[in-house]
């Protein structure tokens, strides 16, 4: 029983970490990276969402 629970949470923690990393990357890219093209395209959204923009 203990082994089963361990295996199950072991299986669960990896996808969760993966999703956390992916989500963080998406937010950093869309909301924070200062590359000119990205900044200009996302400018209005960054302001409206409350991210530090420029």
């Amino acid at each position: 029983m203990t082994t089963m629970t361990n295996t199950r949470s072991g299986l669960r923690i990896l996808p969760a970490l993966f999703a956390l990393a992916l989500g963080g990357a998406v937010i950093a890219l869309t909301g924070h990276v200062q590359a000119a093209a990205l900044h200009d395209a996302a400018h209005d959204v960054r302001h409206a969402t409350g991210f530090p923009c420029h």
Binding site: P15, A16, L17, F18, A19, L20, L22, G23, G24, A25, V26, I27, T30, G31, A41, A42, V45, A48, T49
Partner: peptide
Amino acid sequence: IFTMLIYTGYGLILLAL
């Protein structure tokens, strides 16, 4: 498009937790 991307990013973090 960028709003949808940002909320998808939020969604990934939310669902992971």
